[in-house]
Design a protein around this nucleic acid. Structure first.
Ligand SMILES: Nc1nc2c(ncn2[C@H]2C[C@H](O)[C@@H](COP(=O)(O)OP(=O)(O)OP(=O)(O)O)O2)c(=O)[nH]1
Ligand SMILES: [Mg+2]
Ligand SMILES: [Mg+2]
Length: 546
DNA sequence: GCCGTTTTCGGCCCGACTGTTTTCAGTCG
C-alpha cells in the first residue's frame, strides 16, 4: 500500500526533473504544491482513490494531477516520471542538493559537459573547465566545492529539541550587541515543527544594517554563505544552517510574519492581500504606496480580514479559512496542564517522579508501570502515605495476534490499563484488524505509542487510521502523545485526525519532555476538550471510573 | 498545472544576495 509520503515523493521528484528541463515554473509549482498537500494530509490518499473520492475537490489539485495521483496509487508508478528519468540520468537531480546550484545551472552543466553526478562535477570544477560556462566564475566554483558538505538543501534535518540550546545561545549572543531590541527565532522552529532544516533568526535593532557583521562572528560559525545589509546565512561547525534577517522596529510584525512562514501560508496570505488590492512583504502591508500595517503581527492578519493565527497552525492546512470564519481552535497552553503521566520501571523512578510532581504543583500524577506489576502495590502504598492524587496504570504488551494478558491482581489493583503494541510486520489490513481487536476488547483505557513512529525515520505501523480512530472513539480509548522528542507519537497530523474523529489524547512524558508533546498537540489543533490530562481530576475520574 | 461573485485566459508572492551581470538571471528565504 503506497503511503502519502511516497506519492508526494514521486510528484516532488517529477517537479525537480521538470524544472531541470526548463518547464513552466508555475507548472513545477503546481506539482510541488500537490506534493505538499498530500504529505501534510491526514487523509490516506491510497484510500481516497480506492473509495472513488473526487480529488479535484482539494484546492491545488485539478483534473490532471488528480488523474496522475490515481495512476500512482493504482500502479505505484507515474509514466511522466518514468519518461523524465529516461531523459535525465539519476545523478543529475542530485546535483540540486548542492547550495548554489539550481535547475538552470544543473541543466547547463549536464548539457555542456554531460556532468551527471557529484564526482564528475568535482572533477570539472578542479580542472578549471567549469569557468568556461557563462555565469560560472571562481567564486561560484569555490562555493560549489564547499557546497558538497552542506545539509539543508540535501534535506537533512535536525530534531527540534536538538537545536533548542544552540538557538537560545545564538539569541543571547545577538542580544548582547548594542542597539539590539528583539531577537526572535522564527521559521519552522517557531512553528514547532518536530524537525527543522535550519534556524531562522529575526533581529530588530536600531542600526540593523550592522547586525550581519556581528552575527557572522559567532564563535561556532564555520562558513559564511552570504552576507548583506538585511540578511545573512552561515553554517555552524555541526553543519546547522542559520539564516539571519535584520529589520527596523517599525517592520517587526511584518518581518516576523514573513520569517515564521510557512512558505505556503505566506503565499496564501499574500494572495488574499492581492484580492483586496493590497501588497504584503516583510516590511509591511501596502495600499499603493501607503503602508497600512507593519509593526504588529496581528495587524497583518487583520489587514486581510483574518483573526490572528498561532504559529503552530501556519502550514496552509485549513487555518486560513478557519480564521476567516472565526473557527480557529482555542489551543491548549503549556501552563494549563493538570496532570502528568510518566512511565516507571522501578521504585527509584517512582520516587523521582513523585518528588518532581510535588515541586511542579499540578493536580494529579499518572504512573504507568511497565514490566513489574508488583510495583503497582508499592505505588498505592506510597499514594496513601503522601496524600497526592495518584493514578496507577498497568502497561500491557500486545502480541502479534492482538492478544494480551492482564493478571487478575493487576486488574484489581491498577486504576487503568495502557496497551503497547509490540512491533510486528503485518499487512495494513491485518495490522488494522490487530489494533481493532485490542480497541474493541473493552479492557484498555490508553493506547501507548500508537503508531510506533520515530521522528526523521520511516518507522511506524501501516494501517487504516480512520478505522482505528473510529474504534478508539467508540470504546473511549485515549491515544497517547508521547513527548519524547525522538518519537512524538502520535504525530501532529495524526493528532489532528484523531481529534477530528472525536478521539481524546493524553500527552505523556517527564517534566523536561512534556512541552515537546504539547507543541505537537498544538500543531494538531488540540483544544482542552481533546486532551484528558488538561482536565481536572474529577473529570478524569469520571472518564475512567476512579 | 491550477484557478475564477471582477475572469475559462492569463495571471500565478515578493524581495535579498551573488556574480562579471553593464541591467539582470539565478538561487534562495
Ligand atoms: N513569502 C515567502 N516566504 C518564504 C519563502 N521561502 C521561505 N519563506 C519564509 C517562510 C519560511 O518559514 C521562512 C524560513 O524559510 P526556511 O526555508 O528556513 O523554511 P522553514 O523554516 O519554514 O522550514 P525548514 O525547517 O527550515 O525547512 O522564510 C518564499 O518563497 N516566499
Ligand atoms: Mg527554516
Ligand atoms: Mg531558513
Amino acid at each position: 500500500m503506497i503511503s502519502n509520503k511516497e506519492i508526494a515523493g514521486i510528484l516532488s521528484k517529477t517537479a525537480d526533473l521538470l524544472e531541470i528541463k526548463g518547464e513552466n515554473p508555475f507548472k513545477v509549482r503546481a506539482y510541488r504544491n500537490a506534493a505538499r498537500i498530500i504529505e501534510n494530509s491526514a487523509k490516506d490518499f491510497n484510500k481516497l482513490v480506492n473509495e472513488g473520492f473526487d480529488l479535484t475537490k482539494l484546492p491545488g489539485i485539478g483534473h490532471d494531477l488528480s488523474e496522475y495521483i490515481k495512476e500512482i496509487v493504482k500502479t505505484g508508478k507515474f509514466h511522466k516520471l518514468e519518461e523524465l528519468k529516461k531523459e535525465i540520468p539519476q545523478g543529475v537531480a542530485e546535483l540540486l542538493s548542492i547550495e548554489g546550484l539550481g535547475p538552470k545551472r544543473v541543466k547547463l552543466l549536464y548539457e555542456t559537459f554531460g556532468i551527471k553526478n557529484m564526482d564528475e562535477l568535482k572533477k570539472y570544477a578542479l580542472s578549471g573547465e567549469l569557468e568556461k560556462l557563462p555565469g560560472f566564475g571562481p567564486k561560484l566554483i569555490e562555493k560549489i566545492l564547499k557546497g558538497f558538505k552542506q545539509l539543508k538543501k540535501a534535506g537533512i534535518r535536525f530534531l527540534w529539541a536538538d537545536v533548542e540550546n544552540i538557538a537560545y545561545e545564538m539569541r543571547e549572543y545577538l542580544l548582547d550587541y548594542k542597539g539590539v531590541q528583539i531577537v526572535d527565532i522564527a521559521g519552522s522552529f517557531r512553528r514547532k515543527k518536530e524537525s527543522v532544516g535550519d534556524l531562522d533568526i529575526l533581529v530588530i535593532a536600531d542600526d540593523y544594517q550592522r547586525v550581519s557583521d556581528y552575527f557572522v562572528k559567532f564563535h561556532r560559525v564555520k562558513e559564511i554563505y552570504s552576507k548583506g545589509l538585511t540578511r545573512s546565512t552561515v553554517f555552524l561547525d555541526n553543519s546547522l544552517q542559520i539564516d539571519l534577517r535584520a529589520v527596523a522596529k517599525d517592520s517587526y510584525g511584518a518581518a516576523l510574519h514573513y520569517f515564521t512562514g510557512s512558505k505556503a501560508h505566506n503565499i496564501e496570505i499574500r494572495k488574499l492581500a492581492i484580492e483586496k488590492g493590497l501588497k504584503i512583504n516583510e516590511y509591511g502591508v501596502y495600499k499603493g504606496n501607503e503602508k497600512i500595517a507593519s509593526s504588529k503581527e496581528s495587524d497583518i492578519y487583520k489587514s486581510v480580514g483574518l483573526n490572528y493565527i498561532e504559529p503552530e497552525l501556519r502550514e496552509n492546512r485549513g487555518e486560513i479559512e478557519a480564521s476567516r470564519i472565526n473557527a480557529l481552535p482555542k489551543l491548549i497552553k503549556e501552563e494549563e496542564i493538570k496532570g502528568y503521566m510518566c512511565t516507571v520501571k522501578d521504585m527509584d523512578e517512582v520516587k523521582k517522579y513523585i518528588d518532581d510532581f510535588v515541586k511542579v504543583n499540578k493536580e494529579y500524577l499518572i504512573l504507568n508501570v511497565s514490566n513489574r506489576y508488583e510495583l503497582i502495590n508499592k505505588v498505592k502504598t506510597l499514594k496513601n502515605s503522601k496524600n497526592i492524587k495518584l493514578i496507577t496504570a498497568a502497561e500491557v504488551s500486545v502480541d502479534e495476534n492482538g492478544d494480551f494478558e492482564i493478571p487478575e491482581d493487576v486488574l484489581n489493583n491498577a486504576d487503568i490499563i495502557a496497551a503497547l503494541m509490540k512491533k510486528t510486520e503485518l499487512s495494513a489490513k491485518d495490522q488494522t484488524q490487530r489494533y481493532l481487536k485490542v480497541l474493541n476488547s473493552k479492557k484498555i483505557n490508553i493506547l501507548l505509542r500508537p503508531s510506533l513512529r520515530e521522528v526523521l525515520t520511516d518507522a511506524g505501523v501501516d494501517l487504516d487510521w480512520d478505522e482505528v480512530f473510529n474504534a478508539a472513539y467508540s470504546n473511549n480509548v485515549v491515544m497517547e502523545v508521547n513527548s519524547n522528542p525522538k518519537y512524538l507519537d502520535l504525530s501532529d497530523i495524526l493528532i489532528k485526525k484523531a481529534i477530528e474523529c472525536g478521539v481524546k489524547i493524553i500527552i505523556t512524558g517527564n517534566y523536561k519532555n512534556i512541552k515537546y508533546g504539547i507543541y505537537q498537540a498544538r500543531r494538531g489543533w488540540c483544544e482542552k476538550k481533546d486532551a484528558v490530562n488538561f482536565w481536572n481530576y474529577e473529570r478524569v475520574g469520571k472518564l475512567w471510573g476512579l
